[in-house]
Amino acid sequence: MAALGHTFPFYGGPKPTFRMDTTLAIILTIFLTALVTFVVILPGIRGKMRLFWLLRVVTSLSIGAVTLAVNFSSEWSVGQVSANTSYKAFSPEWISADVGLQVGLRGVNITLTGTPVQQLNETIDYNEEFTWHLGGNYAKEYAKALEKGLPDPVLYLAEKFTPNSPCDLHRQYGLAGHYTSALLWVAFLCWLLTNVMLSMPVLVYGGYMLLATGMFQLLALVFFSMATSLALSCPLHLGTATLHTRHGPAFWTTLTTGLLCVLLGLAVAVAHRMQPHCLKAFFTQSAEEDTVQEWSPEEGGFLIPHYQSMDENPKTQDIPLSGASSETCCQEESPQEFDYAL
């Protein structure tokens, strides 16, 4: 490489990148497949229940997909800046590029895209990930990046998150990611219990579990914000520009979903108190077993429960006895007379 005029350290070229996280792509594919499956069987549901059923399925799958996807997202804190910066170590040449930083619950993702992409007879398009979650050794991954000879902007940002960095970003974001991820997993389990209970007669408990799903999501956001706000002020200078971070799409999506779960959970609880029969009709469930059920004449109409009180049906029901039973009863009432003649 030295004979060909390349400058050390030399990176063999940008690796192929997929613009979307493969884990998120798998999660979305699974939930979209489930949605398509439910839509296929939708024509088999008659009447007004079809709309209610579709609304429940779409809402439930959306909540589950978001709760699981944000746990693996790398866009909890994001930042991007256009800067003129050095490209390689031991090289005086500078490039014009867009530098992006995405901080997730499991690590950081750094992007470097040249403007234009072709500069210095190279394709400047990098997308590098450094993880610290579940056994990931961030320091070891950073050492491998140094051996590869990644571009200076990538190494500079990655160095800020190393355990030995004075910025202490590794400890703060690692702690926030660990507990936020745990709370999101609890929220996902609550979502599973919500679907189970809403398919059973215990609708109010399904509403409580949906409320718990939203509360755990909001609690995860509070913990992430508190843990990251304690991080030291560490400016990220790239040439003459400064990179600033802010809450990313994953944070705001979780906030929206959490508030939606809280509102829906409260709505189910209130409907159970005020209009229990309408709530059962919305979830395609019959009324209580001790009621007389009548169907509306329209196809797919609602179940209309009708209670019969003693005032409405004052006549007592006489149960006729058979002939043998009557004779037995008479014999029991008139005792047998014995002749005591001496």
Rank of each mutant, 00 (worst) to 15 (best):
P92C: 02
D21N: 15
P276V: 02
S233D: 13
Y340F: 11
A281G: 06
A187T: 04
P14R: 10
F8M: 02
L42G: 07
T37L: 14
F8C: 07
L230D: 01
G239D: 02
T194M: 09
G135A: 10
F282G: 01
H244F: 14
D125C: 05
Q172N: 09
I95P: 13
T123H: 03
S309W: 08
L230Y: 08
A83P: 01
Y340G: 06
M209I: 00
V292F: 12
R246D: 11
L28S: 09
L321E: 07
P14M: 04
G13H: 08
T37V: 11
L255D: 01
V57P: 00
G104R: 07
G301N: 02
F282K: 00
F283Y: 15
F338G: 06
A139G: 05
N195T: 11
H178R: 14
A83I: 00
L259V: 05
A341N: 12
L260G: 12
Y126R: 05
S62I: 10
G5L: 13
V40L: 11
Q118L: 13
D168V: 02
V186E: 01
T180K: 06
T291V: 14
Q80T: 04
T328W: 13
S286M: 04
T22P: 05
C278V: 06
P116G: 04
R46L: 05
L192I: 15
K88T: 00
W94T: 09
L42W: 05
L183H: 14
P335W: 10
T253H: 08
Q293K: 14
W185R: 07
V36L: 15
S199V: 03
A3S: 15
S62M: 11
A34Q: 03
A158W: 11
P305E: 07
T257F: 14
T85R: 01
S77Q: 15
I124E: 02
Q331L: 13
S82K: 07
E312Q: 14
E294A: 13
Y126M: 00
S199K: 12
L342N: 13
H244W: 10
T253P: 01
D152S: 12
Q293E: 07
V204H: 05
V196R: 09
L55Q: 14
H133G: 01
I30C: 08
H237F: 03
V292A: 07
N137Q: 10
T113Q: 06
G12M: 04
T328Q: 15
G206E: 03
C329H: 11
S82H: 07
F10V: 07
L54N: 10
G174D: 02
F188H: 01
L183K: 11
H277F: 06
H170V: 00
